[in-house]
Write a protein that binds this DNA or RNA. Structure first.
Lengths: 235, 235
DNA sequence: ATTTGCATTATTGTTGACAATCGCCGGGCG
DNA sequence: CGCCCGGCGATTGTCAACAATAATGCAAAT
């Protein structure tokens, strides 16, 4: 079984003494970046040693992550990164469609000229990334593009919910865009949404973004089912 | 300052010894039913005594409620029921529009004949409650009507999010329907949604439910602003 | 060789005591 | 009379030891 300090790699982790809430952030980030894979156990002692936080803080962080749906805590068995099955993935995407859709609508109605200009700029850079066949650059720009719309919609509550929803599927999202065909498809969706927003058409923007997310969901489902077919404790 | 066991009222609270997670439920319920009003402090010792749970469990429950956005925890000041301002109310309603809207759409597409029959039945009872001018009965039926759609949409994730979103405004929702005019207006919205669902028209069902919720939001905003004008520590 | 039972160990859950901080109350002073 | 300030009680934050439980490894028996 892989322990935690096995993988202490790049970070200058010399007794960080992370104070409190940061432990939750640290774990979230680790889950998002794939350092902790679904099913992996999160042993309190290891986290204590890795972060320098006290056990109380570690426990508090784990309980928080559980109520966010990121980890599973079983009595006397401890915490582990929660696995998502296909049904849950579907539900996540349904929620994303609803929330990110309405964000696009709101963004189209209230975005400042600067924000619209930034959106157009990102669109150009996305195009150039596609033209260059640069999936890494595309991934970063893609995240920024979505983030601009979500945070620009002026609804921190919805932005927060979406942020939490995305964590479990972040890694798959990332992997899904290493195929040039999918990349082109995704970008055509971006174009439709961007055009509607720049035209100030909230209705169309919402519809286009819904379509865009729905397209992506099929791709992710494939990836998840591939992963799910591996041995249960492998991932 | 009102303490907790001042208000220990109806429940047979003879040393309940609530085990663990139940403490969070107990607090949630108390907040929802107005036993704990926004701004009220939630002292650990009082909760311990009232529930019979240990302090660890109480703290755990409070932290959970904080990450749900229900309570506010300040360093060395403890937990208190979070106040919602008008901007946050707007954001809650925007999220509700998105999530309950898509639930109506999904329900229209996948509800069983039994569920549709139940919806029609509820609609009749709502009408009769309006005709009788019975706001209490209407309130109960109204909650059931929304619940049927949300839980019948087949998305527990979205249902859970909506459940948490509604808690802070539950009391206002309740109070808002003691005006016969508003009651009639709300019911006309119910009719539009029900008709669309029974016709199997997901698109129209979503649009109608969005409109219905949006109508309600204005009413709630009025109530909140009235409350907000009272002295800050009164509520 | 496989399985069963047992003892050991690793890990989590719980409790209690102690330290830190905030809010209040009363006294001193301008 | 009003204001500042220092102590005091109440409340929360932190930590370490202890108890309860599950996982593991080993040996013996079939």
């Amino acid at each position: 079984m892989a322990t935690l300090h096995d993988t202490q790699d790049n970070a200058p982790s010399r007794r960080k003494m992370l104070p409190a809430q940061s432990v939750a952030d640290w774990l979230r980030e680790g889950i998002r970046r794939g350092r902790f894979v679904p099913g992996q156990r999160l042993v309190e002692a290891d986290i204590t040693q890795a972060t320098g936080a006290s056990r109380s803080k570690v426990r508090e962080a784990l309980q928080r992550l559980e109520s966010e749906g990121l980890v599973l805590i079983e009595e006397f068995k401890g915490a582990s990164v929660r696995r998502v099955n296909l049904e849950e993935l579907r539900q996540i995407y349904r929620a994303r469609i609803a929330l990110e859709g309405i964000s696009a609508r709101d963004f189209a109605m209230r975005a400042s000229p600067e924000q619209r200009a930034r959106l157009a700029e990102l669109m150009d850079e996305l195009d150039s990334a596609v033209a260059d066949g640069a999936p890494d650059r595309f991934n970063g720009l893609n995240a920024e593009w979505h983030k601009l719309i979500i945070e620009g919609a002026g609804n921190e509550l919805v932005a927060g919910i979406l942020g939490r929803l995305n964590i479990p599927i972040q890694r798959m999202l990332f992997e899904s865009l290493y195929n040039i065909e999918r990349l082109k498809a995704a970008n055509s969706g971006h174009h439709a949404v961007t055009a509607a927003i720049l035209a100030g058409d909230g209705e169309a923007a919402e519809a286009a973004l819904r379509q865009h997310i729905d397209d992506g969901s099929a791709t992710i489902a494939v990836i998840l089912s591939e992963i799910g077919e591996q041995s249960p404790n492998a991932v």
